[in-house]
Design a protein around this nucleic acid. Structure first.
Length: 470
DNA sequence: TGAAATGTTGGGGCG
DNA sequence: ACGCCCCAACATTTC
């Protein structure tokens, strides 16, 4: 292999320099390397990245540019049709190889396949790698050769397979080609919101590889408590790695091996859910749009814009639900236990379609991920893989008392309730008038009355969902 | 990765 | 001392 042959690395959902197989493959050829990112939102079909993720992407690209600068390189930013832009870069730099790490969204698999074939026809060396998952969707099969629809047997099978490889360090340096292609400015991609609703995000998040490594380090130190405390949203016992993992800023292999060293089995199992979500999405590519279980195809979900808005804005009158929705709006993220609670509330208490919830999460979550979002919402909706049975209805008051007993979470996100004593915090409408007055709470004024009666809503949901026939 | 309804048990109060 | 009731605590079943 000639030392001067130039390699293009097409960055996508792998915005890191450590343990990046495509980047390492390029670097190991010994010649110049051209890192490229192409903004092409039209390729995502109905699932163009939402507002929160675009905010994240902007900052992540900035961070990647700095990481590459530390290796003596730069990042070429382009927008438009990926094949066209790649060809322009190849022509300009005289590159003879293109490497990338695979993506798995249904719309992108087809696109990438076409690009690979076209570039091969151009006479280039084209290779793709796994930079995102412990197991790629097709690596895991039932004994009869089909896809899994239930997590536990899927995970059992995964545990029988050889371990994910150890992560590899970043390349030492990336030589520049003699001709450097033009790059658009980061601002010109228009990723930042016009109205600055994301100001709360930067207090909580540092997008990019450095921020991800920092979160990983912090989490590993407390990971011994994960199994016991991961369901307590007022604690910081979960990893908060999801947006970093989604954007590929930390390597899943890195996370896996660090967690394993610390015997964080319960956490590794959660990483397994992520692989499972990709597995299901790959084998059932219609699931972002339609329920996996056919019998739910025509379910008469309610169209109730008023209640949907109340849910979105955190004004349902159920403190744990409202706290979660406000955390989401303010920080672009929500604790996983609370995601289940608010999802159950939308789908079962309000009988609004899981798809409406998925849409809202898609636009507001910095970790919005088509596989995880689809699996999670269909789970809550009872219509997906390993779905919650229709009769499993979360009681928002009991969930609040059980997982936020000291009220730290609700008090943080619903400060207008913060002076309510613990016994009434999760059901303010049941508090005696004197207690409410004392706490400065005026139901219907400073905090909403419940928009539905949970007991009645539960019965209606059981009746409606129970009539679904297979 | 639930909750409510129903059933069972066992201890304490009390006539 | 005994039976009866109450009810909390736990277990099981049902949705």
């Amino acid at each position: 292999m000639a030392d001067d042959s130039t390699s293009i690395v097409w960055f996508r959902q792998d915005l890191r320099v450590r343990d990046n197989p495509a980047l390492l493959a390029a670097a190991s050829r010994g010649g110049p390397v051209v890192p490229v990112y192409i903004w092409s939102p039209d390729d995502h079909g109905d699932w163009e990245p939402g507002g929160a993720r675009k905010w994240w992407l902007h900052h992540s690209l900035q961070s990647l540019r700095e990481s590459l600068a530390n290796l003596g390189s730069r990042l070429v930013l382009r927008q438009g049709d990926p094949l066209e832009e790649l060809r322009k870069v190849i022509r300009y730099t005289g590159g003879d190889a293109v490497f990338w790490n695979r993506r798995y969204e249904p719309d992108l698999i087809g696109r990438d396949k076409n690009i690979k074939q076209a570039l091969k026809n151009d006479g280039l060396d084209v290779k793709s790698f796994n930079g995102l998952l412990m197991r790629e969707p097709w690596e895991v099969q039932t004994n009869s050769g089909g896809p899994y629809k239930v997590f536990t047997p899927f995970w059992k099978m995964c545990l029988n397979l050889p371990e994910p490889e150890k992560p590899k360090p970043a390349p030492k340096r990336l030589p520049l080609p003699s001709r450097w292609p033009a790059s658009e400015s980061l601002d010109s991609l228009g990723l930042l919101p016009r109205i600055d609703w994301a100001s709360g995000f930067s207090e909580k998040w540092t997008p990019g590889e450095g921020g991800g490594q920092e979160k990983l380090r912090r989490f590993i130190n407390v990971s011994a408590d994960y199994a016991d405390r991961r369901d307590v949203p007022g604690d910081e016992a979960t990893s908060r790695l999801s947006p970093h993992l989604h954007h590929g800023e930390v390597s899943i292999r890195d996370v896996y091996h660090r967690a394993k060293q610390h015997h964080a089995q319960a956490y590794i199992r959660e990483l397994g859910w992520r692989d499972f979500a990709y597995h299901v999405l790959h084998h059932f590519p219609h699931t972002p749009q339609a329920p996996l279980q056919q019998k739910f195809a025509d379910f008469p979900w309610r169209d109730d814009p008023e209640r949907l808005t109340a849910w979105q804005r955190g004004r349902t009158g159920y403190p744990i639900v409202d706290a979660g929705m406000r955390e989401l709006w303010t920080t672009g993220w929500m604790h996983n236990r609370v995601r289940m609670i608010v999802a159950s509330f939308l789908v079962k208490d309000l009988l609004i379609s899981w798809a409406e919830g998925a849409r809202w999460f898609w636009d507001t979550l910095v970790d919005a991920d088509l596989a995880n979002n689809t699996l999670g919402w269909q789970w809550a909706g009872g219509c997906g893989a390993d779905a919650a049975p229709y009769f499993r209805v979360f009681n928002p008051v009991l969930q609040g008392k059980k997982f936020d007993g000291d009220g730290a979470y609700v008090r943080r996100w619903c400060p207008e309730l913060s002076r309510l004593p613990d016994p009434h915090l999760h059901a303010p409408w049941e508090a005696p008038p004197g207690v409410l007055r004392e706490a400065g709470v005026q139901l219907g004024e400073s905090y909403p009355e419940p928009i539905v009666n949970h007991q009645r809503a539960r019965e209606q949901a059981l009746e409606a969902l129970g009539s679904v026939k297979s």
